[in-house]
């Protein structure tokens, strides 16, 4: 099965590369933030797959959970900042 995990990981990395085009060239801040968020959610799955490749999924699933929560918070904070021009009103 390790070949399957390797191929799946490489294909997910390819989709990340496709989304990287929007993060670098995409017109405006919104496209870049959306690209960052999408790359983050894809990375969560990639981390889990890498855990299975290294045959230590237990540790890597914890990292993936933490990364998912951080990515969600980051997306919300970026959206709020772009909407209001400030993250936290005094």
């Amino acid at each position: 099965m390790i070949e399957v995990f390797l191929v799946t990981g490489m294909l997910i990395a390819t989709t990340i590369l496709i989304c990287l085009y929007r993060a670098v060239f995409g017109p405006g801040a919104f496209n870049r933030v959306a690209a960052a968020s999408v790359i983050g959610t894809k990375t969560v799955v990639l981390v889990v797959i890498v855990g299975y490749i290294f045959e230590r999924p237990g540790a890597f699933v914890d990292i993936a959970l933490l990364y998912a929560i951080l990515n969600f918070l980051g997306t919300l904070i970026f959206a709020k900042y772009l909407e209001r021009g400030e993250v936290c009103s005094a």
Partner: peptide, 26 residues
């Protein structure tokens, strides 16, 4: 481990539409 993965998938099912909605609204 499967329980953790199940929780991860539920979290994605809730968090992804919420993040999309936040960016759309902004």
């Amino acid at each position: 481990l499967s329980a953790k993965l199940l929780f991860l998938s539920f979290f994605m099912l809730l968090a992804n539409p919420a993040g999309t909605h936040a960016m759309m609204r902004a």
